[in-house]
Design a protein around this nucleic acid. Structure first.
Length: 485
RNA sequence: GGCCCCAUCGUCUAGCGGUUAGGAUCCAUGGUUUUCAUCCAUGUUACAGGAGUUCAAGUCUCCUUGGGGUCACCA
Protein backbone atom coordinates (compact mmCIF):
# COMPACT_ATOMS: atom_id res chain seq x y z
CA UNK A 1 0.00 0.00 0.00
CA UNK A 2 1.46 3.30 -1.01
CA UNK A 3 -1.29 5.53 0.35
CA UNK A 4 -0.12 5.39 3.93
CA UNK A 5 3.39 6.82 3.41
CA UNK A 6 1.98 9.58 1.23
CA UNK A 7 -0.63 10.31 3.84
CA UNK A 8 1.99 10.51 6.56
CA UNK A 9 4.02 12.97 4.53
CA UNK A 10 1.13 15.39 4.44
CA UNK A 11 1.40 18.48 6.56
CA UNK A 12 -0.11 17.89 9.99
CA UNK A 13 -2.82 20.41 9.41
CA UNK A 14 -3.96 18.86 6.17
CA UNK A 15 -3.76 15.45 7.73
CA UNK A 16 -5.97 16.57 10.56
CA UNK A 17 -8.48 18.10 8.21
CA UNK A 18 -8.55 14.85 6.34
CA UNK A 19 -9.14 12.85 9.48
CA UNK A 20 -11.78 15.28 10.58
CA UNK A 21 -13.51 15.15 7.26
CA UNK A 22 -13.52 11.42 6.82
CA UNK A 23 -13.22 9.81 10.21
CA UNK A 24 -14.19 12.12 13.01
CA UNK A 25 -17.58 11.46 14.47
CA UNK A 26 -19.61 14.64 14.72
CA UNK A 27 -22.99 14.49 16.42
CA UNK A 28 -25.41 17.10 17.61
CA UNK A 29 -28.38 17.69 19.83
CA UNK A 30 -30.92 19.98 18.19
CA UNK A 31 -33.91 20.69 20.39
CA UNK A 32 -36.58 23.20 19.64
CA UNK A 33 -36.90 25.78 22.40
CA UNK A 34 -39.55 24.64 24.84
CA UNK A 35 -38.03 26.21 27.92
CA UNK A 36 -36.69 23.06 29.48
CA UNK A 37 -34.89 19.84 28.67
CA UNK A 38 -37.09 16.80 28.86
CA UNK A 39 -36.24 13.23 29.62
CA UNK A 40 -36.55 11.91 26.08
CA UNK A 41 -34.45 14.72 24.69
CA UNK A 42 -31.87 14.08 27.35
CA UNK A 43 -31.57 10.47 26.27
CA UNK A 44 -30.86 11.32 22.66
CA UNK A 45 -28.50 14.04 23.84
CA UNK A 46 -26.75 11.48 26.02
CA UNK A 47 -26.49 8.97 23.18
CA UNK A 48 -25.08 11.63 20.87
CA UNK A 49 -22.69 12.85 23.53
CA UNK A 50 -21.42 9.38 24.35
CA UNK A 51 -20.88 8.42 20.75
CA UNK A 52 -18.94 11.57 19.96
CA UNK A 53 -16.93 11.28 23.16
CA UNK A 54 -16.10 7.65 22.56
CA UNK A 55 -14.72 8.54 19.15
CA UNK A 56 -12.93 11.67 20.29
CA UNK A 57 -15.31 13.52 18.06
CA UNK A 58 -17.49 16.54 18.52
CA UNK A 59 -20.91 17.02 20.01
CA UNK A 60 -22.69 20.22 19.06
CA UNK A 61 -25.71 21.95 20.45
CA UNK A 62 -28.10 23.71 18.12
CA UNK A 63 -31.32 25.48 19.00
CA UNK A 64 -34.00 25.02 16.36
CA UNK A 65 -35.69 28.34 16.74
CA UNK A 66 -36.83 29.23 13.27
CA UNK A 67 -40.20 29.79 14.86
CA UNK A 68 -39.40 33.11 16.49
CA UNK A 69 -42.35 33.17 18.86
CA UNK A 70 -40.62 31.10 21.50
CA UNK A 71 -37.81 32.34 23.68
CA UNK A 72 -34.72 30.49 22.61
CA UNK A 73 -32.25 32.14 24.95
CA UNK A 74 -34.19 31.02 27.97
CA UNK A 75 -34.48 27.55 26.49
CA UNK A 76 -30.76 27.37 25.81
CA UNK A 77 -30.03 28.42 29.37
CA UNK A 78 -32.33 25.73 30.70
CA UNK A 79 -30.58 23.12 28.61
CA UNK A 80 -27.17 24.31 29.68
CA UNK A 81 -28.24 24.25 33.29
CA UNK A 82 -29.38 20.66 32.93
CA UNK A 83 -26.20 19.72 31.08
CA UNK A 84 -24.16 21.26 33.84
CA UNK A 85 -25.99 19.33 36.51
CA UNK A 86 -25.47 16.10 34.60
CA UNK A 87 -21.90 16.79 33.60
CA UNK A 88 -22.53 16.82 29.87
CA UNK A 89 -20.61 19.21 27.69
CA UNK A 90 -21.04 20.36 24.15
CA UNK A 91 -18.36 21.65 21.82
CA UNK A 92 -18.02 25.19 20.66
CA UNK A 93 -20.68 27.84 20.56
CA UNK A 94 -24.38 27.10 20.61
CA UNK A 95 -25.80 27.47 17.13
CA UNK A 96 -29.04 29.41 16.92
CA UNK A 97 -30.88 28.87 13.70
CA UNK A 98 -32.62 32.21 14.08
CA UNK A 99 -29.30 33.96 13.53
CA UNK A 100 -28.49 32.13 10.34
CA UNK A 101 -31.14 33.49 8.00
CA UNK A 102 -28.61 34.86 5.56
CA UNK A 103 -26.97 31.46 5.24
CA UNK A 104 -30.26 29.76 4.48
CA UNK A 105 -31.20 32.52 2.05
CA UNK A 106 -28.00 31.92 0.20
CA UNK A 107 -28.71 28.23 -0.27
CA UNK A 108 -32.30 28.88 -1.22
CA UNK A 109 -31.08 31.27 -3.87
CA UNK A 110 -28.63 28.67 -5.09
CA UNK A 111 -31.41 26.13 -5.58
CA UNK A 112 -33.54 28.73 -7.29
CA UNK A 113 -30.69 29.67 -9.63
CA UNK A 114 -29.98 26.05 -10.43
CA UNK A 115 -33.62 25.38 -11.17
CA UNK A 116 -33.87 22.89 -8.32
CA UNK A 117 -36.43 25.02 -6.55
CA UNK A 118 -39.05 27.47 -7.70
CA UNK A 119 -41.47 30.15 -6.58
CA UNK A 120 -44.98 28.93 -6.01
CA UNK A 121 -47.79 31.47 -6.22
CA UNK A 122 -50.60 29.27 -5.06
CA UNK A 123 -52.72 31.15 -2.56
CA UNK A 124 -53.61 29.64 0.78
CA UNK A 125 -57.23 29.45 -0.32
CA UNK A 126 -56.31 27.59 -3.45
CA UNK A 127 -54.12 25.21 -1.50
CA UNK A 128 -56.90 24.52 0.98
CA UNK A 129 -59.31 23.89 -1.84
CA UNK A 130 -56.86 21.51 -3.48
CA UNK A 131 -56.53 19.56 -0.25
CA UNK A 132 -60.26 19.35 0.26
CA UNK A 133 -60.78 18.01 -3.23
CA UNK A 134 -58.08 15.42 -2.67
CA UNK A 135 -59.58 14.36 0.61
CA UNK A 136 -63.01 14.11 -0.95
CA UNK A 137 -61.55 11.82 -3.58
CA UNK A 138 -59.69 9.84 -0.92
CA UNK A 139 -56.35 10.78 -2.40
CA UNK A 140 -53.40 11.72 -0.28
CA UNK A 141 -53.11 15.45 0.24
CA UNK A 142 -50.19 16.90 -1.61
CA UNK A 143 -49.12 19.87 -3.61
CA UNK A 144 -49.95 19.32 -7.26
CA UNK A 145 -46.85 20.91 -8.77
CA UNK A 146 -48.78 23.67 -10.47
CA UNK A 147 -45.86 26.11 -10.50
CA UNK A 148 -43.13 23.55 -10.93
CA UNK A 149 -42.54 24.43 -14.55
CA UNK A 150 -44.50 27.62 -14.66
CA UNK A 151 -43.56 30.17 -17.26
CA UNK A 152 -46.63 32.36 -17.59
CA UNK A 153 -47.60 35.61 -15.95
CA UNK A 154 -46.99 35.60 -12.20
CA UNK A 155 -50.23 36.11 -10.33
CA UNK A 156 -50.77 39.42 -8.54
CA UNK A 157 -51.23 39.79 -4.82
CA UNK A 158 -49.63 36.55 -3.73
CA UNK A 159 -46.33 36.47 -1.91
CA UNK A 160 -44.73 33.31 -3.25
CA UNK A 161 -43.24 30.49 -1.22
CA UNK A 162 -40.24 28.58 -2.45
CA UNK A 163 -40.74 24.91 -3.17
CA UNK A 164 -38.06 22.36 -3.85
CA UNK A 165 -38.34 20.03 -6.82
CA UNK A 166 -38.65 16.65 -5.19
CA UNK A 167 -38.42 13.42 -7.14
CA UNK A 168 -41.85 12.20 -8.24
CA UNK A 169 -40.89 8.63 -8.91
CA UNK A 170 -38.43 6.12 -7.60
CA UNK A 171 -37.47 5.32 -4.05
CA UNK A 172 -35.53 7.02 -1.31
CA UNK A 173 -33.71 4.74 1.07
CA UNK A 174 -32.82 5.89 4.54
CA UNK A 175 -29.84 3.90 5.69
CA UNK A 176 -30.53 3.73 9.37
CA UNK A 177 -28.15 2.28 11.94
CA UNK A 178 -31.01 1.24 14.18
CA UNK A 179 -33.85 0.29 11.85
CA UNK A 180 -31.87 -0.93 8.87
CA UNK A 181 -32.63 0.29 5.38
CA UNK A 182 -36.01 1.97 5.28
CA UNK A 183 -37.40 2.43 1.80
CA UNK A 184 -39.88 5.16 0.93
CA UNK A 185 -41.56 5.48 -2.46
CA UNK A 186 -41.44 9.05 -3.72
CA UNK A 187 -44.97 8.82 -5.07
CA UNK A 188 -46.26 7.86 -1.62
CA UNK A 189 -44.69 10.53 0.48
CA UNK A 190 -43.10 13.31 -1.50
CA UNK A 191 -44.37 16.45 -3.08
CA UNK A 192 -42.62 19.72 -3.82
CA UNK A 193 -42.53 20.82 -0.23
CA UNK A 194 -42.00 24.39 0.93
CA UNK A 195 -38.45 25.33 1.84
CA UNK A 196 -39.07 29.06 2.30
CA UNK A 197 -42.26 30.65 3.54
CA UNK A 198 -43.94 33.65 1.99
CA UNK A 199 -42.00 35.88 4.38
CA UNK A 200 -38.77 34.30 3.17
CA UNK A 201 -38.04 32.33 6.33
CA UNK A 202 -36.81 28.79 5.78
CA UNK A 203 -38.67 25.72 6.99
CA UNK A 204 -37.56 22.93 9.25
CA UNK A 205 -36.65 20.15 6.85
CA UNK A 206 -34.53 22.55 4.89
CA UNK A 207 -32.58 24.14 7.73
CA UNK A 208 -31.94 20.84 9.46
CA UNK A 209 -30.22 19.47 6.40
CA UNK A 210 -28.30 22.66 5.72
CA UNK A 211 -27.11 23.06 9.29
CA UNK A 212 -26.15 19.45 9.79
CA UNK A 213 -24.15 19.56 6.58
CA UNK A 214 -22.49 22.89 7.35
CA UNK A 215 -21.65 21.88 10.90
CA UNK A 216 -20.05 18.71 9.61
CA UNK A 217 -22.51 16.49 11.44
CA UNK A 218 -22.03 13.04 10.02
CA UNK A 219 -23.88 10.90 12.55
CA UNK A 220 -27.38 11.98 13.40
CA UNK A 221 -28.89 10.35 16.47
CA UNK A 222 -32.47 11.46 17.05
CA UNK A 223 -35.96 10.24 17.92
CA UNK A 224 -37.67 7.96 15.43
CA UNK A 225 -40.52 10.44 15.16
CA UNK A 226 -38.14 12.03 12.67
CA UNK A 227 -37.83 8.95 10.52
CA UNK A 228 -40.58 9.94 8.14
CA UNK A 229 -39.05 13.42 7.75
CA UNK A 230 -35.75 11.99 6.71
CA UNK A 231 -36.56 11.41 3.01
CA UNK A 232 -37.38 15.09 2.68
CA UNK A 233 -34.09 16.01 4.25
CA UNK A 234 -32.34 13.65 1.90
CA UNK A 235 -33.95 15.51 -1.00
CA UNK A 236 -32.38 18.69 0.35
CA UNK A 237 -28.99 17.07 0.87
CA UNK A 238 -28.98 15.81 -2.67
CA UNK A 239 -30.16 19.04 -4.22
CA UNK A 240 -27.37 20.88 -2.44
CA UNK A 241 -24.77 18.23 -3.15
CA UNK A 242 -24.10 17.57 0.52
CA UNK A 243 -23.04 14.23 1.85
CA UNK A 244 -25.83 12.38 3.61
CA UNK A 245 -25.00 11.59 7.23
CA UNK A 246 -25.43 8.28 8.96
CA UNK A 247 -28.76 8.15 10.76
CA UNK A 248 -29.76 6.44 13.98
CA UNK A 249 -33.43 6.79 14.75
CA UNK A 250 -33.94 5.80 18.36
CA UNK A 251 -37.35 4.55 19.41
CA UNK A 252 -39.65 6.69 21.47
CA UNK A 253 -40.09 6.58 25.19
CA UNK A 254 -43.74 5.99 25.90
CA UNK A 255 -45.83 6.88 28.91
CA UNK A 256 -47.87 4.34 30.86
CA UNK A 257 -50.66 4.68 28.30
CA UNK A 258 -48.25 3.68 25.55
CA UNK A 259 -48.15 7.07 23.90
CA UNK A 260 -45.26 9.37 23.16
CA UNK A 261 -43.99 11.03 26.32
CA UNK A 262 -45.26 14.58 26.58
CA UNK A 263 -45.37 17.50 28.97
CA UNK A 264 -48.52 16.21 30.55
CA UNK A 265 -46.82 13.06 31.75
CA UNK A 266 -45.62 14.52 35.01
CA UNK A 267 -41.93 14.96 35.45
CA UNK A 268 -40.53 15.29 31.99
CA UNK A 269 -38.37 18.27 32.96
CA UNK A 270 -34.93 16.95 33.74
CA UNK A 271 -34.37 19.48 36.49
CA UNK A 272 -37.43 18.20 38.31
CA UNK A 273 -35.41 15.05 38.93
CA UNK A 274 -32.83 17.07 40.76
CA UNK A 275 -35.52 18.55 42.95
CA UNK A 276 -36.92 15.12 43.67
CA UNK A 277 -33.51 14.02 44.91
CA UNK A 278 -32.14 11.95 42.08
CA UNK A 279 -28.43 11.94 41.38
CA UNK A 280 -27.05 12.65 37.91
CA UNK A 281 -25.33 9.26 37.88
CA UNK A 282 -28.58 7.44 38.51
CA UNK A 283 -30.57 9.40 35.97
CA UNK A 284 -27.95 8.96 33.26
CA UNK A 285 -27.54 5.28 34.07
CA UNK A 286 -31.29 4.86 33.95
CA UNK A 287 -31.63 6.59 30.62
CA UNK A 288 -28.74 4.87 28.92
CA UNK A 289 -30.40 1.53 29.63
CA UNK A 290 -33.68 2.66 28.15
CA UNK A 291 -33.40 1.41 24.60
CA UNK A 292 -29.81 0.34 24.87
CA UNK A 293 -28.06 -2.51 26.63
CA UNK A 294 -24.71 -4.15 26.99
CA UNK A 295 -25.34 -7.79 27.81
CA UNK A 296 -26.65 -8.13 31.33
CA UNK A 297 -24.89 -5.10 32.75
CA UNK A 298 -27.09 -2.71 34.69
CA UNK A 299 -24.66 -0.35 36.37
CA UNK A 300 -22.66 1.99 34.16
CA UNK A 301 -20.35 4.74 35.26
CA UNK A 302 -19.91 7.62 32.86
CA UNK A 303 -16.54 6.19 31.86
CA UNK A 304 -18.11 2.82 31.11
CA UNK A 305 -20.90 4.40 29.12
CA UNK A 306 -18.37 6.22 26.99
CA UNK A 307 -16.35 3.08 26.53
CA UNK A 308 -19.21 0.70 25.81
CA UNK A 309 -21.91 2.72 24.13
CA UNK A 310 -22.48 2.09 20.47
CA UNK A 311 -25.59 3.27 18.63
CA UNK A 312 -25.70 0.07 16.63
CA UNK A 313 -26.81 -1.66 19.82
CA UNK A 314 -29.84 0.55 20.26
CA UNK A 315 -33.15 -1.33 20.37
CA UNK A 316 -35.74 -1.13 17.68
CA UNK A 317 -38.80 -1.00 19.88
CA UNK A 318 -40.22 1.73 22.05
CA UNK A 319 -39.98 1.48 25.81
CA UNK A 320 -42.39 2.46 28.51
CA UNK A 321 -41.28 4.96 31.07
CA UNK A 322 -41.43 3.57 34.59
CA UNK A 323 -39.41 4.85 37.51
CA UNK A 324 -39.00 1.63 39.50
CA UNK A 325 -35.55 1.04 38.19
CA UNK A 326 -34.60 4.68 38.53
CA UNK A 327 -35.39 4.48 42.24
CA UNK A 328 -33.31 1.38 42.60
CA UNK A 329 -30.38 2.92 40.74
CA UNK A 330 -30.63 6.09 42.76
CA UNK A 331 -30.54 4.12 46.01
CA UNK A 332 -27.57 2.23 44.65
CA UNK A 333 -25.64 5.39 43.87
CA UNK A 334 -26.49 6.99 47.21
CA UNK A 335 -25.20 3.91 48.99
CA UNK A 336 -21.97 4.07 47.07
CA UNK A 337 -21.32 7.77 47.38
CA UNK A 338 -18.54 8.78 49.79
CA UNK A 339 -19.82 10.66 52.83
CA UNK A 340 -18.00 13.87 52.08
CA UNK A 341 -19.61 14.03 48.67
CA UNK A 342 -22.95 13.02 50.10
CA UNK A 343 -22.87 15.85 52.63
CA UNK A 344 -22.17 18.22 49.79
CA UNK A 345 -25.08 16.91 47.73
CA UNK A 346 -27.43 17.01 50.69
CA UNK A 347 -26.84 20.73 51.15
CA UNK A 348 -28.96 21.28 48.04
CA UNK A 349 -31.87 19.86 50.01
CA UNK A 350 -31.54 22.23 52.91
CA UNK A 351 -29.39 20.01 55.06
CA UNK A 352 -26.22 21.63 56.36
CA UNK A 353 -24.07 19.10 58.17
CA UNK A 354 -20.66 20.73 58.10
CA UNK A 355 -20.55 21.36 61.84
CA UNK A 356 -22.04 18.09 63.01
CA UNK A 357 -19.39 16.15 64.93
CA UNK A 358 -20.92 12.72 64.21
CA UNK A 359 -21.42 13.34 60.53
CA UNK A 360 -19.74 10.13 59.44
CA UNK A 361 -21.81 7.90 61.71
CA UNK A 362 -24.96 9.73 60.71
CA UNK A 363 -24.42 9.39 56.98
CA UNK A 364 -23.31 5.79 57.28
CA UNK A 365 -26.47 5.01 59.20
CA UNK A 366 -28.78 6.55 56.62
CA UNK A 367 -27.24 6.09 53.19
CA UNK A 368 -28.63 2.55 52.95
CA UNK A 369 -32.11 3.69 53.80
CA UNK A 370 -32.95 6.41 51.33
CA UNK A 371 -34.13 6.15 47.74
CA UNK A 372 -33.54 9.82 47.08
CA UNK A 373 -31.38 12.59 48.46
CA UNK A 374 -34.49 14.46 49.42
CA UNK A 375 -35.69 11.50 51.42
CA UNK A 376 -32.28 11.19 53.02
CA UNK A 377 -32.33 14.82 54.10
CA UNK A 378 -35.72 14.18 55.63
CA UNK A 379 -34.47 11.09 57.46
CA UNK A 380 -31.49 12.96 58.83
CA UNK A 381 -33.75 15.66 60.20
CA UNK A 382 -35.94 13.06 61.82
CA UNK A 383 -32.96 11.92 63.84
CA UNK A 384 -31.37 15.26 64.60
CA UNK A 385 -34.57 16.89 65.76
CA UNK A 386 -36.16 16.09 69.09
CA UNK A 387 -39.42 14.29 68.41
CA UNK A 388 -42.35 16.68 68.70
CA UNK A 389 -44.90 13.90 68.87
CA UNK A 390 -45.11 10.14 69.16
CA UNK A 391 -46.71 7.74 66.73
CA UNK A 392 -49.81 6.59 68.59
CA UNK A 393 -50.00 3.15 67.09
CA UNK A 394 -46.36 2.54 67.92
CA UNK A 395 -46.86 3.65 71.50
CA UNK A 396 -49.84 1.38 71.89
CA UNK A 397 -47.92 -1.53 70.50
CA UNK A 398 -44.61 -1.10 72.27
CA UNK A 399 -45.14 0.89 75.45
CA UNK A 400 -45.81 -1.69 78.14
CA UNK A 401 -46.51 -1.30 81.83
CA UNK A 402 -42.86 -1.77 82.73
CA UNK A 403 -41.51 0.50 80.00
CA UNK A 404 -41.32 3.61 82.18
CA UNK A 405 -39.27 1.77 84.77
CA UNK A 406 -36.91 0.42 82.13
CA UNK A 407 -36.43 3.81 80.56
CA UNK A 408 -35.82 5.33 83.98
CA UNK A 409 -33.17 2.78 84.75
CA UNK A 410 -31.53 3.24 81.40
CA UNK A 411 -31.65 7.03 81.66
CA UNK A 412 -30.04 6.96 85.05
CA UNK A 413 -27.23 4.71 83.80
CA UNK A 414 -26.59 6.97 80.83
CA UNK A 415 -26.54 9.97 83.10
CA UNK A 416 -23.94 8.31 85.30
CA UNK A 417 -21.58 7.49 82.44
CA UNK A 418 -18.75 9.87 81.76
CA UNK A 419 -17.35 8.58 78.50
CA UNK A 420 -20.03 8.10 75.86
CA UNK A 421 -18.99 8.65 72.28
CA UNK A 422 -19.33 5.69 69.98
CA UNK A 423 -22.30 3.42 69.30
CA UNK A 424 -20.46 0.66 71.13
CA UNK A 425 -20.36 2.81 74.29
CA UNK A 426 -24.14 3.14 74.25
CA UNK A 427 -24.59 -0.47 73.36
CA UNK A 428 -22.64 -1.47 76.47
CA UNK A 429 -25.06 0.53 78.63
CA UNK A 430 -28.04 -1.14 76.98
CA UNK A 431 -26.51 -4.55 77.60
CA UNK A 432 -25.86 -3.73 81.21
CA UNK A 433 -29.50 -2.75 81.76
CA UNK A 434 -30.78 -5.84 79.96
CA UNK A 435 -28.59 -8.07 82.12
CA UNK A 436 -29.37 -6.36 85.41
CA UNK A 437 -33.10 -6.32 84.88
CA UNK A 438 -33.08 -9.76 83.33
CA UNK A 439 -35.12 -8.72 80.34
CA UNK A 440 -34.90 -9.30 76.60
CA UNK A 441 -33.43 -6.72 74.26
CA UNK A 442 -36.84 -5.95 72.81
CA UNK A 443 -38.12 -4.88 76.20
CA UNK A 444 -35.82 -1.89 76.19
CA UNK A 445 -35.42 -1.45 72.48
CA UNK A 446 -39.02 -0.73 71.55
CA UNK A 447 -39.85 1.92 74.16
CA UNK A 448 -36.42 3.49 73.81
CA UNK A 449 -36.95 3.73 70.07
CA UNK A 450 -40.19 5.58 70.61
CA UNK A 451 -38.51 7.88 73.09
CA UNK A 452 -35.65 8.69 70.75
CA UNK A 453 -37.41 8.77 67.39
CA UNK A 454 -41.13 8.86 68.10
CA UNK A 455 -41.73 5.77 65.98
CA UNK A 456 -40.73 2.14 65.62
CA UNK A 457 -38.40 2.22 62.63
CA UNK A 458 -34.98 3.67 62.09
CA UNK A 459 -31.28 3.00 62.46
CA UNK A 460 -29.74 1.10 65.35
CA UNK A 461 -30.46 2.76 68.69
CA UNK A 462 -26.84 2.81 69.81
CA UNK A 463 -26.06 4.62 66.58
CA UNK A 464 -28.83 7.12 67.08
CA UNK A 465 -27.68 7.89 70.59
CA UNK A 466 -24.09 8.30 69.51
CA UNK A 467 -25.25 10.77 66.87
CA UNK A 468 -27.39 12.93 69.14
CA UNK A 469 -25.12 12.65 72.18
CA UNK A 470 -25.61 12.05 75.87
CA UNK A 471 -27.57 15.17 76.79
CA UNK A 472 -30.04 14.90 73.96
CA UNK A 473 -30.50 11.22 74.72
CA UNK A 474 -31.40 11.97 78.31
CA UNK A 475 -33.70 14.77 77.24
CA UNK A 476 -35.61 12.53 74.84
CA UNK A 477 -35.94 9.79 77.43
CA UNK A 478 -37.23 12.26 80.00
CA UNK A 479 -39.68 13.70 77.48
CA UNK A 480 -41.04 10.27 76.68
CA UNK A 481 -41.45 9.38 80.34
CA UNK A 482 -43.34 12.62 81.00
CA UNK A 483 -45.56 12.08 77.99
CA UNK A 484 -46.48 8.50 78.80
CA UNK A 485 -46.51 8.30 82.56
C1' G B 1 -57.16 6.99 5.94
C1' G B 2 -51.91 6.86 3.09
C1' C B 3 -46.88 5.93 4.33
C1' C B 4 -43.30 4.21 7.93
C1' C B 5 -41.71 1.69 12.41
C1' C B 6 -42.36 -1.92 16.23
C1' A B 7 -43.95 -6.79 18.97
C1' U B 8 -39.69 -11.93 24.73
C1' C B 9 -41.94 -11.87 32.14
C1' G B 10 -46.14 -5.92 34.85
C1' U B 11 -41.52 -2.81 33.55
C1' C B 12 -36.15 -2.41 31.44
C1' U B 13 -33.83 -6.07 28.65
C1' A B 14 -30.33 -10.77 26.93
C1' G B 15 -31.06 -14.00 22.84
C1' C B 16 -28.52 -13.15 16.72
C1' G B 17 -31.54 -21.67 13.83
C1' G B 18 -30.41 -26.43 18.40
C1' U B 19 -30.94 -22.67 25.60
C1' U B 20 -34.45 -26.36 31.34
C1' A B 21 -35.76 -18.90 27.13
C1' G B 22 -30.98 -15.66 30.94
C1' G B 23 -30.32 -11.03 33.94
C1' A B 24 -32.31 -6.65 36.40
C1' U B 25 -36.48 -4.27 38.59
C1' C B 26 -41.15 -4.90 40.85
C1' C B 27 -44.01 -8.31 43.89
C1' A B 28 -44.15 -12.55 47.43
C1' U B 29 -41.69 -15.78 51.01
C1' G B 30 -37.57 -17.00 54.14
C1' G B 31 -32.77 -15.68 56.54
C1' U B 32 -29.70 -11.68 58.90
C1' U B 33 -31.18 -7.21 61.99
C1' U B 34 -33.99 -5.64 69.27
C1' U B 35 -37.32 -2.44 64.74
C1' C B 36 -37.29 -0.51 59.82
C1' A B 37 -34.13 -0.34 55.73
C1' U B 38 -29.86 -2.57 53.54
C1' C B 39 -27.90 -7.28 52.39
C1' C B 40 -28.47 -12.62 51.16
C1' A B 41 -31.50 -16.79 49.45
C1' U B 42 -35.86 -18.71 47.10
C1' G B 43 -40.21 -18.25 44.22
C1' U B 44 -44.48 -16.55 40.67
C1' U B 45 -44.60 -14.34 35.68
C1' A B 46 -42.88 -13.82 28.86
C1' C B 47 -41.54 -15.47 23.10
C1' A B 48 -49.33 -11.67 20.28
C1' G B 49 -51.85 -15.30 16.64
C1' G B 50 -51.57 -18.15 12.08
C1' A B 51 -49.21 -20.11 7.82
C1' G B 52 -44.69 -21.36 5.58
C1' U B 53 -38.83 -22.41 5.02
C1' U B 54 -35.86 -26.10 7.85
C1' C B 55 -34.05 -32.34 10.51
C1' A B 56 -34.73 -28.11 13.98
C1' A B 57 -37.83 -21.32 14.58
C1' G B 58 -38.32 -16.66 20.07
C1' U B 59 -34.64 -16.25 16.14
C1' C B 60 -35.70 -16.44 8.67
C1' U B 61 -40.28 -15.27 5.13
C1' C B 62 -45.42 -13.97 4.54
C1' C B 63 -50.24 -12.83 6.49
C1' U B 64 -53.39 -11.34 10.57
C1' U B 65 -53.90 -8.76 15.00
C1' G B 66 -52.27 -5.14 18.26
C1' G B 67 -49.42 -0.75 19.43
C1' G B 68 -46.76 3.59 17.96
C1' G B 69 -44.98 7.50 14.73
C1' U B 70 -45.78 10.77 10.72
C1' C B 71 -48.45 13.16 6.95
C1' A B 72 -48.17 22.02 7.52
C1' C B 73 -46.03 28.40 4.78
C1' C B 74 -44.69 23.65 13.41
C1' A B 75 -40.17 21.94 14.92
Amino acid sequence: MFILPVFNQCLPKIRQLFIQRFFMVVTRFAPSPTGYLHIGGLRTALFSYLWAKKNNGKFFLRIEDTDKARNSVEAAEAILKAFEWLGLEHHGEIVYQSSRDSIYAQYIKQLLDEGKAYYCYMSKEELTELRETQMANKQRTMYNGKYRDFSGETPEGVEPVVRIKAPQTGAITVKDGVKGDVVFQAKDILDDFVIARADGSPTYNFVVAVDDALMGVNEVIRGDDHLSNTPKQIVVYEALGFEIPKFYHVPMIHNQEGKKLSKRDGATDVMAYKEMGYTPEALLNFLVRLGWSYGDQEIFSMAEMVELFNPKDINKSASIYSTDKLDWLNAHYIKNTPNSKLAELLSAYGLILTSHDKKEILLDALKDRAKTLKEMAYLVNEIIQTPASYDEKAVKKAFKSDSIEILNTFGAKISACEELHLPTDYHAVMEAVVNEMEIGFGKIGQPLRIALLGKLSGPGLDTVMAIIGKNETMLRIANAITAHR
